[in-house]
């Protein structure tokens, strides 16, 4: 069992927790993820590490309440326990040789982008962050990004905070103005990452995307997280859990990944509604 040391509501649908898991806290690097189960009957879900405190032995996770499992997790309070917490999994974000980086985060993906931005800042790289949300209510981690970014663009789809528009707007402006980056790293909804790649392509800036496909074991056993890379017109199967989650954005077959991510959409909607009803009745 793993103790919830702190719990903080970041907005109406996003929660942050620090979980006591000393072995994971010692090892986890930005870009890696963990797998957890809320209770003995629960499903295994992957969540990216949002930070660690090796001295305290805690790992920070930030999750959006999107389905039954995240709803259950959100019902746990500080001091309570979750059943399983395993990691760190996946390959850490590659930072070597990157002196000037642009981090592009969308929605709850910003929670994953934040430790990556902090790491580059710590290593002395020049960090430009572009973070986007649907509206002001859903904004998270503004102070954290401000602290680790040399430049910060906040975008909202409805214009209720920061600039009006999506994350590709300032990215395109910078690239068109002749600015360049050693690396763009984008983390968020698949459709957003696809458009970030398209925006960067004419300028030839390398783009790393962080994939978050459906997973079960997360350790390289089940193959459910497979994604297709297209290299020189050849299609190659890779596994996000052991080969990723970071991949070269120019090689990802986004349309396939988007289709696969909706495999259990009906089931998930049903399970989520069931769980919500359960809490309503309680």
């Amino acid at each position: 069992m793993y103790k919830i040391v702190t719990k903080k509501v970041l907005n109406s649908t996003v929660t942050q927790m620090e979980i006591e898991a000393p072995l994971v806290a010692r090892k986890a690097r930005p870009g890696q993820f963990i797998i957890l189960r809320v209770d003995e009957e629960g499903e295994r879900i992957p969540l990216t590490v949002a930070g660690t405190n090796p001295e305290e032995g805690t790992v920070k996770i930030i999750f959006q309440i999107v389905g039954a499992t995240t709803a259950l997790l959100n019902h746990k309070e500080q001091g309570e326990f979750i059943q399983d917490f395993a990691g760190p999994l996946g390959v850490a974000t590659h930072t070597e040789g990157v002196k000037k980086v642009c981090i592009v985060g969308g929605g709850v993906g910003c929670a994953i982008a934040m430790p990556v931005a902090q790491e580059f800042h710590r290593l002395g790289a020049e960090v430009t962050s572009v973070i986007g949300f649907r509206s002001k209510d859903l904004l998270i981690l503004e102070d954290e990004f401000r602290a680790c970014s040399d430049r910060l663009f906040i975008m909202t789809d409805d214009g209720s905070y920061g600039r009006h528009g999506n994350v590709t707007v300032p990215l395109k402006e910078m690239l068109e103005a002749g600015e360049t980056f050693d690396q763009i790293i984008t983390i968020g909804p698949l459709i957003m990452m696809k458009f970030v790649v398209l925006a960067a392509k004419p300028f030839g800036v390398p783009v790393t995307v962080s994939m978050n496909p459906i997973m079960i074991d997360g350790t390289g056993m089940c193959g459910g997280c497979r994604i297709t890379l297209v290299k020189d017109d050849k299609r190659v199967t890779k596994f996000a859990c052991v080969d990723g989650p970071d991949f070269n954005g120019y090689e990802i077959d986004f349309d396939e990944a988007m289709s696969r991510s909706r495999m259990y959409a009906d089931y998930e909607r049903h399970a989520y509604e069931e769980t919500c009803n359960l809490f309503k009745n309680a």
Binding site: G220, M221, C222, G223, G224, R235, T237, R260, M263
Partner: peptide, 25 residues
Amino acid sequence: GLPNFMNIPGEAYKGVYSANEFLTR
């Protein structure tokens, strides 16, 4: 370890499982 696939077209369609994934589920 990791399941093998045949590398034929269509293996990414929804409804294609490795035996490992199907049995693990």
